[in-house]
Each structure stands twice: as C-alpha cells, then as structure tokens.
Simulated assay, not measured.
Amino acid sequence: MRRYGQSLYQPRSPVARCVNFLCAVLLTLILVAGVILFVLWLSLRPHRPKFYLSDFSIPNANRQSAGLANLPMHFTVNEHNPNQKIGMFYDEILASVFYGDQLIATGPVMNPFYQQPKGDTPVQGTLLARGPVPTDPSWGRFAGEMSAGSVEMRLVLTSKVQFQVKVWDTKHHHMKVECDFTMQGDGTLRPQDKNSQCTLYF
C-alpha cells in the first residue's frame, strides 16, 4: 500500500524515452513521405484527353436519289491534352461513321503522332461513303430523315494511346471516341452539335 506523500510519478528509463523518441521520428517521417508521394501522384497522374466534334459534312448529300455511295464525308475532331507535364503518343487513328447500327464509312484518317502537354491537335479526315443506298433496308428511313432535315449519326475514332510521364512511358491504352451528332438536310453538321464533347472510352 502506497504511503502518504509518496510521489505518483515514476520516472521512465532512458531506454523507454529513446524508444518513444524513435517512434515519434519514424511516424513523422512516414507522414512526410506519404504527403510527398501523394503530391507526386497528383502531379504525375495522367488525365485522359478530350475530344470535341468541330465539323462534319457530306457535300451534295440531299441531291443523291441513288444513295450516298462514294460520296466524300469530311470531319474535324479537335483533340486536347489536359496534362501540364505529360505528353501522349497516338498510334494510327481509324474512323468509322454509323447510321444507327449500319456502318456507312470507315478507314484510317491520321498517322501516328505525339501530342505535347497542354497541346491541341485537329483530327481531320475524309472517308468515302458506302451507303446507305436504295437497296438497303435503312434507305427509306434515311431518305425520310434527310427530307425532314434531321439525321442522327455517330462518328467513332479508335486508336492506342501511350502516356509519356517524365522519362518513362506507360503501357498502351486502347482508345475509343464516340461523337453522336445530327446532320442537317443539306449534309452539314447541326449548329447545336458544333464543338460538342465526344465520349471517350479507355
């Protein structure tokens, strides 16, 4: 039993004080290292590119009673790299145009290229339409929508992308860009869809 006046304070041994000090230093170093790694991860984490449909046209589309076969399709999609310190390497870009589920044009439109950080590159292409033609089941609906001045279509871009982070490159990512838009009766892009952002899939 503790006697009256005996101190409750029990001095810690030097070994215990040394262990507590080392634990405090270790925890501080772990915290500082965690903050540094988090900041580095934020600065080096690649952000996906962005794509905007700038233009699409099929000249003389409304004057073709025999269908769209062999008519040129012109388009421009603006690509933007939002990363401040990360560049991107693109493989060859393949474009396809769909009317509903029907593929009406496809082909390569751009050779491999490097996109610098915060850079912009217009992806421009011309494809020859393979349809629809009057013998296609979809021709009646397509012709009716052309007469009404509103044809819903979809432009798809596919490629592979590799991010360049400082002095090393990441793995290749399969990229798919879908631009849904409406074509007017004269074969031009509806004004509301100009510069609309496309959907990106990785």
Rank of each mutant, 00 (worst) to 15 (best):
F113Y: 14
G67L: 01
F51E: 09
A66C: 07
L42Y: 09
Y90W: 15
P59V: 00
P59C: 02
L29V: 15
N111C: 03
D101S: 12
A66K: 13
R48C: 04
F51K: 06
F98D: 12
P59E: 04
L26P: 06
V109T: 14
N81G: 09
Q102M: 07
L68Y: 01
L31W: 05
H47P: 00
V97A: 10
P112L: 03
A95E: 12
R63T: 14
N70G: 04
P49W: 00
L44H: 04
A69L: 07
L29R: 14
N83Q: 12
P117T: 07
D120C: 07
L53H: 01
A33L: 06
L68K: 03
S43F: 10
N62T: 11
F51D: 11
W41N: 13
K50W: 02
D55P: 04
Q116D: 14
Y52N: 12
I30F: 08
I36D: 08
M110G: 07
T106M: 05
P112R: 06
G34H: 10
N111I: 05
A95V: 07
L40H: 05
V97D: 01
T121S: 15
F56S: 06
Q115H: 05
P122L: 04
P46K: 04
E79V: 14
K118R: 14
F38T: 13
G67A: 02
D120I: 08
L26C: 15
N83Y: 05
F75K: 00
I93E: 01
N62Q: 14
A95T: 08
M110T: 15
F38E: 13
L68N: 02
T76L: 03
N60C: 07
G119E: 14
L22W: 09
A69F: 02
L37Y: 09
I86A: 08
R63W: 04
Y52G: 04
L26N: 15
V109N: 09
V109I: 15
L40S: 04
S65P: 04
G67T: 03
E79T: 15
I36E: 11
Y114T: 11
A105W: 00
L22Q: 09
L53K: 03
G119T: 08
P46R: 04
F51T: 10
P117K: 13
P72A: 00
P59L: 02
T28Q: 06
V25D: 09
H47Y: 06
A61R: 05
W41K: 07
M110H: 14
P117L: 11
I93R: 00
D91C: 02
Q102G: 01
K85N: 13
F75E: 00
T121K: 10
R63G: 05
Q84E: 14
L68Q: 10
N70P: 01
P82H: 07
A61D: 00
S43M: 12
S54T: 12
P46V: 03
Q115Y: 02
M110R: 15
G119M: 06
P108M: 03
K85I: 08
V25G: 07
T28K: 01
L103G: 09
V32H: 08
T106P: 01
Q84D: 14
P82F: 01
G100K: 09
A105S: 05
A33Y: 02
R48H: 10
L37S: 13
K85V: 10
G34I: 07
G67D: 03
Y99N: 05
S54I: 08
